[in-house]
């Protein structure tokens, strides 16, 4: 009886020491889950989720303070990715936080711009260049389409322009499966199948 208790106590001590050592030796700085969630977010830093950027939203999701369907730029695909990551049920985008829109970039009407620099200060990714009383312009390749520059503009000269598809961004479409034998014209543009 005593020896059994002694053995159990010894085992507990050894394991406790091992665990204690491991918790110090293999300590993970920061929350890896937050980083993983952050990686699923589109990094537009638009704040439509109600948090001051993508990282705070990721933190809130990790803590369970926010739902996974509050990110309109991420859209349905983003929600699916988060659902997969967190093992949660997919849910449609919350209407309170906005609607999914096609990707767009801000465009400053250079005739109307008065050079107030308010949009420059609002841009979370420094995609607007200009100086006080000088015309401003948006660096298209850096713009995330977060729309944060729209409200501060006193002359409402900023508009969102949807990004048009061009040859560089064009994607092959998902092949359509024919249920019945195709008619005269092949369904797929690729003649490879016609060979």
């Amino acid at each position: 009886m005593l020896s059994a208790i002694a053995v159990m106590a010894l085992g507990a001590l050894v394991l406790g020491a091992a665990l204690g050592y491991a918790s110090i030796r293999f300590k993970v700085e920061g929350d890896p889950l937050v980083d993983k969630i952050d990686a699923c977010l589109p990094q537009t830093q638009c704040g439509q989720c109600g948090f001051a950027g993508c990282h705070p939203y990721a933190e809130a999701i990790a803590k369970g303070e926010a739902d996974i369907n509050q990110c309109p730029p991420g859209g349905e695909e983003g929600i699916r990715r988060l659902a997969d990551l967190l093992g949660r049920e997919f849910k449609p985008l919350s209407a309170d936080h906005g609607v999914e829109k096609p990707k767009a970039v801000a465009l400053i009407d250079e005739q109307t711009c008065i050079g107030c620099t308010l949009c420059i200060q609002a841009c979370p990714v420094d995609a607007i260049v200009g100086a006080a009383k000088q015309m401003h312009t948006v660096v298209e390749s850096l713009c995330t389409g977060c729309e944060l520059c729209l409200p501060p503009c006193p002359v409402e000269c900023i508009s969102m322009e949807p990004i048009a598809e061009d040859i560089a961004t064009w994607k092959w479409k998902y092949p359509v499966t024919a249920i019945r034998p195709a008619a005269a014209t092949p369904l797929h543009p690729s003649p490879a199948q016609a060979a």
């Binding site: 952050d38 977010l41 589109p42 990094q43 537009t44 830093q45 950027g53 993508c54 979370p124 990714v125 420094d126 995609a127 850096l142 995330t144």
Partner: peptide, 16 residues
């Protein structure tokens, strides 16, 4: 491409 753009946006945001 999207991922690279998001990564770049994040870096720029953090730098800002």
């Amino acid at each position: 491409k999207e991922k690279a753009a998001a990564e770049a946006a994040k870096t720029r945001f953090e730098f800002k």
